[in-house]
Design a protein around this nucleic acid. Structure first.
Lengths: 196, 196
DNA sequence: TTAACAACCGTCCATTCGGTCAGTAACTAG
DNA sequence: CTAGTTACTGACCGAATGGACGGTTGTTAA
């Protein structure tokens, strides 16, 4: 029994609705997607959506929180490790790539938030906190002599995660391909450079 | 005379209006900015905007075209050079960073286009053309043995420009700082890696 | 003084927006 | 069969949206 036989009338539940919503938000942009658009995509009426969720913004909140929780889980895991900062950094990058791949639609939505509402500003605040974590790690790795000292660590950190985050722009999951290969590629290019 | 004394009633012209519009679009997102919002920011009425521009979308078109023209100008310049592909690639990256820095608001808007309208789809098409150019260059550089062969050139190209394009997320121009230093940093990290 | 010019205002409009509410349909466990 | 549970419909609302239009104000060149 893959389906444990839910009670009540069949149809969407919050989870399945969220999946569709987030995908559509990513296609057309959150502001560019109306609840009418979404209802059409779902094949139900607009008002039916409000049976599952109290507002459009709540859909956004659920999505970005899921993404942020994934990223912070990796960060916590990283922090608990022993070893040099650069090893932690590589672990964090690997973990981040895996989260991006596994939670692609949610992270995509997160990385496009602009800050127009409270929900969006809260998401941005948590994002900045994560960025600070990365920057600190790069700084420590530089102090330990493992990261090139000729570039401002803050710039290095941003370029590094610029590369990581850019995955959402082009990476599309295909069956049978693990995210670990992609994580390898990212780490190689980022840490060793693209030159032969 | 820095101002050549324009005819007619003083106020905004298309150029000065576009500057404000694009900045606001970047702050709140294109779809998230209403013409009413824009008019308030400008300090004129909504209808006054339509004296300068026939539609909201035209503002977007003007902006993204400016960004694309800048990028393709660099690409054309690169193509006309002699030398190994990897040198051309580095020149293209350098030039791209400079365009990003000099035309920051316009490129920012371009890189956030989703494809909801004809204007947006046209912009996306030109962007894809530019990406193809980059990918080809990376492929040639790999064939010439200058780019690491253990990673798919298409992936390398995307990661490279993921890093370049991420500038729009954090780089803010400050007086006295040339874009060339930033271009140096990007090239060092991208080509040699962040490891010491 | 006057004509040409360019920027601007106030009012209006059809449509779309996010959201509400009272009722209905479909399913399962007892 | 019935009661409980869950998903959904259709009609509606006030506010906001992009845009149209005719008239007005301020500036420069002749």
């Amino acid at each position: 029994m893959s389906t444990p036989a839910r009670r009540g009338r069949p149809g969407y539940d919050l989870e399945s609705l969220l999946q569709v919503a987030v995908r559509l938000f990513n296609e057309r942009g959150y502001d560019g997607t109306s609840m009418e658009d979404l209802s059409r995509k779902l094949g139900i009426t607009k008002s039916a959506i409000y049976h599952h969720v109290p507002s459009k913004e709540e859909l956004l909140r659920l999505a970005v929180d899921r993404a942020l929780n994934g990223l912070f889980a990796v960060a916590a895991e990283t922090e608990s490790f022993e070893g040099r900062a650069i090893e932690k950094l590589e672990h964090l990058v690997r973990g981040s790539v895996l989260v991006l791949v596994e939670q692609l639609p949610f992270v995509t939505l997160l990385l496009r938030v602009r800050g127009n509402t409270k929900v969006e500003r809260a998401a941005l605040a948590r994002r900045r906190e994560f960025d600070r974590l990365v920057t600190d790690l790069v700084k420590r790795a530089e102090t330990e002599g493992d990261v090139r000292p000729d570039i401002d660590p803050a710039v290095t950190a941003r370029l590094l995660y610029g590369m990581v985050n850019s995955l959402i722009e082009w990476y599309r999951p295909r069956r049978g391909s693990a995210g670990t290969e992609l994580a390898d590629a990212v780490c190689k290019i980022a840490f060793e450079g693209l030159r032969a």
